[in-house]
Amino acid sequence: MTHPCRRSTRRSALAVAAIATLLAAPMACAPDGKDGDGESVLTGVVHVGTSFDHPGFSLHAQRTNRGLDVDIASYLGEEVGFTPKFQDVTIDAREQELREGAADLVISVYSITPERQKLVDFVGPYLMTRQGFLVREDYDGIKSEQDVRNKLLCSAEKSTSSTADLPPGATFHEERDFSTCVRKLQQGSVDAVFSDEALLFGYAQQQRRSKVPLRVVPDVSFGLTNRYGIGLQKGHADDCRKLLRALRTYLVEEWAGDVKVQLPALVDAYPADWENRFKPNPHDLNTYSSCKK
């Protein structure tokens, strides 16, 4: 059970972090001494790269950031001892921001892959998800894997979804971000948005009262299971272990409650087994993290 004071303190830390976000430049550089020399980057104000347009995970609106990725950053800040300062990062710039020191951490639906692990370190996963399809609520053109043939699908450049092996005839239309894909879907320019199922539930929740509501197609998936991790610059093994210990505690104490709050559409879609589908096995943290406890 979560200690009552911990929840209160953590939310206060989130408020402080939200205020700090307003002062952050989009490409703010990390403070001196945080350039991969092995010194800890997890002190004072820590620059956290996250997307500002991923509803359910990290959405910048009404002068604050909210979502599961924001909750995780705030929890880690409280446990380890730093204040997160959020800055927007695009999918194609995550490794660059970490390697150049523009961001100390990236928590942004950042899938752990062997290719990315060659460039940056990871702690995680904190969520696992299959890849699926977001469609207009009244569209019934995709009911099974076979229906994906000859469909026009939108995905974001350099995302793991953009490299998935789909049936013959399926065509990718790539945009810089998934929000643009969602707009094209609502306009009828594409048949579906193809991405991580968990992320798509965030967009479905966001658009539930719009003129063109959306839904995630149940039990239709292609590609690999993606595992979201916390990215950090290589050369900070002590910081990696601190984050790993804190994340283990988060998965036990806070994960389920935060997912229920931030991704209610996901929970509603799989009421009997949403935790089994999306919550990582504790052993996965040893398998996929760049450091060990």
Rank of each mutant, 00 (worst) to 15 (best):
Q96W: 13
E97R: 14
L98C: 07
R99C: 09
R99D: 05
E100L: 12
G101E: 01
G101I: 03
A102G: 08
L105D: 00
I107E: 02
I107A: 02
S108P: 09
S108R: 04
S108L: 09
I112M: 07
P114H: 09
R116S: 05
R116P: 02
Q117H: 13
K118L: 14
L119Q: 15
L119I: 13
V120L: 04
V120H: 00
D121A: 10
V123H: 01
V123D: 00
G124A: 04
P125R: 02
P125L: 03
Y126L: 11
Y126F: 15
M128S: 06
T129A: 01
T129D: 00
Q131E: 13
L134S: 06
E137P: 02
D138G: 13
I142M: 10
K143N: 15
S144P: 10
E145L: 12
Q146R: 15
Q146H: 15
V148W: 03
R149A: 14
R149W: 04
K151Y: 10
K151L: 10
L152C: 12
L152T: 15
L153R: 06
S155W: 03
S155K: 02
S155Y: 03
A156K: 04
S162Q: 06
S162M: 04
T163Q: 10
A164S: 12
D165N: 08
D165I: 09
D165L: 07
L166E: 01
L166T: 03
P168S: 08
